[in-house]
Structure formats: structure tokens, C-alpha cells
Design a protein around this nucleic acid. Structure first.
Length: 503
RNA sequence: CGCGGGGUGGAGCAGCUGGAAGCUCGCGUGGCUCAUAACCACGAGGUCCUGGGUUCGAGUCCCAGCCCCGCAACCA
């Protein structure tokens, strides 16, 4: 059985999840569910990034005297959110866990042994108010924008990672493996960064107190990114479980937002090369979206809470919307008006109504029993769907499924079962079987996206138990719906919503 | 010259390696009645940002320019 290891970024716990985090996580969840159905053994890892100065500040702001209790509370909230939204993660890594610290220490030693860590001075502007280094470009009139104080020029001893030593190897890898960085626009962006701008980076801080101590230098803590990236290793046993690590690493896919592409496509692979570990097969960067046309930000007060939206529209419709509306890899807009349209149109009218009308006719003309199988061929739909999913083109995969739906609605119209019922019952049986069988197959194609709705479709088709034990390859064989099965029409899958929320 | 994305019918978007302009929604007309006021067909509607260039032929390639947006600054 092939293995498939995929990850989301680990999230900062200085705030609660918003719709953007949900987007990344849903995409990973869809893939995880898809790969499991395809028969892969899947490891889907997500988690929280806790060794950051930001978290320390957040703890203080929220009145916590100790940092760890705050982190425990917040990390718990993230985990609960994903659980409540039925994200099917297999493991949840926290960077304050012991297994992670062990992995980081082992990794540091490996890179150090390679001779890629050296000591140097880091000089920069330090704002006492922020307790952090600030950039020249962040200053307003030479003062910190937040604390209105002039920062001090400070010099501290830092450990540096010889990132520049991997420039040629990285370029060669990027060129030899077109699948390594996707989509292609991101690959070009990273390539030019690696080629022209990439320089050695400081990987420790003396001025920060919270973090994993540098092995052999207790006064310094490891820079948060150097620490955080290693979660992808510690989550599968690096430094703690050699057998598990050998099984899962390298990762098949890191899903990331476009903002952190350089960390994942330059720093991270260089770190791995240094430590003598294989590189992840693919890093895929998705886009960002605005909310109703505006940038999402706390100051604008338009940050969307995923639980809230899902409470109104349901988890499945929101999952569907995010991956259908916005091309994966492109930027887009999250609009409640569009969500309402997709809900009523694609889901209610095309899918829900197709199922409902088909079941009604089955009740009416065949007393609720599945008629004898008719011939049919949906191979092209599956082929298109699989190709799209393998390329992480979720919108195209859904298009393939919707094409079959639209064709089915058209079939009803052209065949007119209500006429056939009086003139040609053999043909009627063929039409009805075709519709029912297509719906059975659609339940499979839709399941990764609509994990709650798909089983309901099968229940209404009366084939839930029989389908449960099938493999993907068995499911796609035409004629899987057995003759004589009893359907059970239920409530509409996507009932009209009273008052669609205004955009 | 900080980095990047984009400008295609009313709205939102597809258009990969160049060869008769597509999709969804909305709108109009008609059809149907199995169905969640759902479904189906047809139709109206486009200087494919501008100006050059390459080519037998360019949304699709090259150059220049204009405009919008995201990142860079809590944030996928």
C-alpha cells in the first residue's frame, strides 16, 4: 500500500483560527480523504507553532503570568476547532512537545556536524517596547510605529546557517524537479530568489527568552522558523521513532500559503540537504483571498470565523465553496453572496434536486426499487476527475463531477420519464437506472469534498452498506448499484435557507 | 528600479505548448411538470487594458506603457 504524507503549516497560537486557516486545512483534508479512498496509507499532519515571540506577547496581553498554560489553552482551541469541523488529521504536533524538542536538537547537531552552523554578529535595530528587532522600513520618522520610541542599534552574538552554500544544489533540484514547487508561478519566484537574493540566515536569538535552547549554548534560543519547519520531521518520528520516520519521510506534500513559500522552498530544503535528509516531493502554495472584496484584517473587523459560517451553511457547503470558487493556487474572494449562490445553485439545484427528483420518480414508477441495470459509461468522468485531483486542481475535479450532474438533469428532460411511463417501460427502467447509478458514482467523487453529504446520498440510494466496503477501483465500475435495492428518499440535502446573509 | 498576482460580454472566472472567443450566475424567450418557485433549450450581450512588434495567423509569444490588487506591517 503506497503511503502519502501531507502537512499543513503549523499555526501560530496568538489568535484563533479564521477562514484562511480553514481554507488551507480543508484543502489538506480533501486530499487526505481522497488519498485514503484511493487506497493509500495516509498521514495527515497539522499542529501549532508555539515557540514564537508573538505567542509570548499574546500570553501577556491575555493576562497570563506563565506562558505554557496560555499555549496549552490556545493550542487546545485550535485542535478543538479542527475536530469540530471534522478535519481528519492523523496527528497534531505542538512545537512545545518533548518529541519536537528532541527532533530539533538532533537536527541541529546534524547540521552543526556538517559544518553549516557558524557564529557571527547580528546587528540591527532593537525596540525595547517590542522586545524585538525591527526593520528600517518599519520605522516612522525613525521611531517604532507602535511604541513611538527610537530603537537602539544592538549587536548580539548569533548562530548562522550557511544557507548560501546550498544555492547551486537548490537551483539544480528546482530545475530537475518541476513538481517540487507548485504552481509554476511560485517556482519562478523562488528560483529567482534563490539565485539572486538568498543569503545566510541567523538561526538563533540571544534577546528572546522563549524557545528551544541552542544545543551547547543555553543563552540562546533557536530562531522560530528553523524550529518550526522541523515539525514536519518530528511529527513522523524523527529523533524518537526511527521506524515511523523511515516509513513516512519524505513528505509527499507540504501545503502552504503563498506568504511562507520562501521558508518552505529555500530554507527548508537547504536545511534538509545539510542534515542529509531527502527533500519533500512537492510544496504547493495556494493563494490568499479577500473578504467581500476587502483585505481580511482585524482592524477592518471582517475576519471570518469558520465555525460561524459553517453553522449557517453547513461544513460541506463551505468546503465546496472554498475549493470550487477559487482556483487553487490563485488569489480569490470570499463572498457570502457568492457562497449563497453556490449553495442554492450548484448544491441545491444541480445536486440536491437531481437526487430528489430521481428518487421521487423511482418511487413513483418502480415502487422505490432499483430497476434492472442499464449499460453506461462514465470512465471519462473518473479519468478527468483523477487527473485534476492529482494535480491539486480541485475546481476542475468538481467541474468533472458537475458535468455528469448537468448531463443527468438534461437526460431527464430529453427522455421524459413521465411520458415513458405510459409508452415504454423498458426504456424508462434504463433511464432511471442510469440516473441512480450515476448518483452512486457521484457520491464517491464528491465524498472528499462533501464528507457528510456523500454518505447521505448513498443512504437515500439504499446502498450505504454495500458501498462502504468497496475500494475506489471497485466503486468506479459501472453497474455497482444492485437491482432490487430499496431507495429511501429523505429530506432535501440542501434545503432553501431562509434569508441568505447579505454580502 | 523591493517581491508577486491580475486586467476576457452586467457580475465572477476558464482559456496549457499560438489557428474559427468558452463556463457559471444574472437577463430575455420558449419548453417541461418527475423535482427544493427546481430542470432543459434557444437568444441578446465582448474594442479579449493601450500602443507597437514577431507570424500566413495572437487573449494566447516579445517590447513599452496605463490601471487594479496582494505581500512587505496582527494574518492561510
Amino acid at each position: 500500500m503506497p503511503k502519502y504524507y501531507l502537512t499543513t503549516p503549523i499555526y501560530y497560537v496568538n489568535d484563533v483560527p479564521h477562514i484562511g486557516h480553514f481554507y488551507t486545512t480543508v484543502a489538506a483534508d480533501v486530499l487526505a480523504r481522497y488519498r485514503r479512498r484511493r487506497g493509500d496509507e495516509v498521514m495527515f499532519l497539522t499542529g501549532t507553532d508555539e515557540n514564537s515571540q508573538k505567542n509570548v506577547e499574546a500570553a501577556a496581553k491575555n493576562g497570563y503570568a506563565e506562558i505554557q498554560p496560555y499555549l496549552d489553552m490556545m493550542s487546545g482551541r485550535w485542535r478543538e476547532t479542527w475536530t469540530a469541523l471534522d478535519i481528519s488529521f492523523d496527528d497534531f504536533i505542538r512545537t512545545t512537545e518533548d518529541r519536537h524538542k528532541k527532533a530539533v536538537e538532533k537536527f541541529w547537531r546534524a547540521v552543526e556536524a556538517k559544518g553549516d552552523i557558524y557564529q557571527g554578529d547580528y546587528e540591527g535595530l532593537y525596540c525595547a517596547g517590542c522586545e524585538a528587532f525591527v526593520l528600517e522600513s518599519e520605522l516612522v520618522d525613525g521611531k517604532c510605529a507602535i511604541h513611538k520610541k527610537e530603537p537602539n542599534r544592538l549587536k548580539e552574538k548569533n548562530w548562522f546557517f550557511r544557507l548560501s552554500g546550498y544555492r547551486e544544489k537548490l537551483l539544480a533540484h528546482i530545475d530537475a524537479h518541476p513538481e517540487f514547487i507548485q504552481p509554476v508561478g511560485r517556482r519562478n519566484e523562488v528560483r529567482s530568489y534563490v539565485d539572486k537574493f538568498m543569503s545566510d540566515v541567523s538561526i538563533s536569538r540571544e534577546s528572546m527568552k522563549w524557545g528551544i535552547p541552542v544545543p551547547g549554548d543555553a543563552k540562546s534560543v533557536i530562531y522560530v522558523w528553523f524550529d518550526a519547519l522541523i515539525n514536519y520531521l518530528s511529527g513522523v518520528g524523527y529523533g524518537t521513532d526511527d521506524a515511523a520516520f523511515a516509513k513516512w519521510w519524505p513528505a509527499d506534500l507540504h501545503l502552504v500559503g503563498k506568504d511562507i513559500i520562501k521558508f518552505h522552498c529555500a530554507l527548508w530544503p537547504a536545511m534538509l540537504l545539510s542534515a542529509g535528509l531527502p527533500l519533500p516531493r512537492t510544496v504547493f502554495a495556494h493563494g490568499f483571498f479577500t473578504v467581500n472584496g476587502d483585505k481580511m484584517s482585524k482592524s477592518l473587523g471582517n475576519v471570518v470565523d469558520p465555525k460561524g459560517v459553517c453553522a449557517t451553511y453547513g461544513i460541506d457547503p463551505v468546503r465546496y465553496f472554498l475549493l470550487r470558487e477559487i482556483g487553487f493556487g490563485s488569489d480569490g474572494d470570499f463572498s457570502l453572496a457568492r457562497l449563497a449562490e453556490r449553495y442554492a445553485g450548484d448544491l441545491g439545484n444541480d445536486l440536491g434536486n437531481l437526487l430528489h427528483r430521481t428518487l421521487s420518480m423511482t418511487e413513483k414508477y418502480f415502487a422505490g426499487k432499483v430497476p434492472a441495470p442499464a449499460t453506461g459509461d462514465t470512465a471519462a468522468v473518473w479519468t478527468a476527475y483523477e487527473a485534476a485531483m492529482d494535480g491539486l486542481d480541485f475546481a476542475a475535479a468538481l467541474d468533472a463531477a458537475w458535468g455528469l450532474m448537468r448531463d443527468s438533469n438534461r437526460l431527464v428532460d430529453t427522455e421524459k420519464p413521465w411520458v415513458l411511463a405510459k409508452t415504454d417501460t423498458v426504456r424508462l427502467a434504463n433511464v432511471m437506472y442510469t440516473l441512480l447509478e450515476r448518483l452512486r458514482q457521484l457520491s464517491w467523487l464528491l465524498e472528499p469534498f462533501l464528507p457528510h453529504i456523500a454518505p447521505k446520498i448513498r443512504e437515500q440510494l439504499g446502498c450505504a452498506a454495500a458501498e462502504q466496503g468497496k475500494t475506489w477501483e471497485q466503486a468506479k465500475i459501472w453497474g455497482g448499484l444492485p437491482e432490487g435495492g430499496t431507495i429511501s428518499k429523505g429530506e432535501p440535502l440542501f434545503p432553501r435557507l431562509e434569508e441568505p446573509k447579505k454580502a
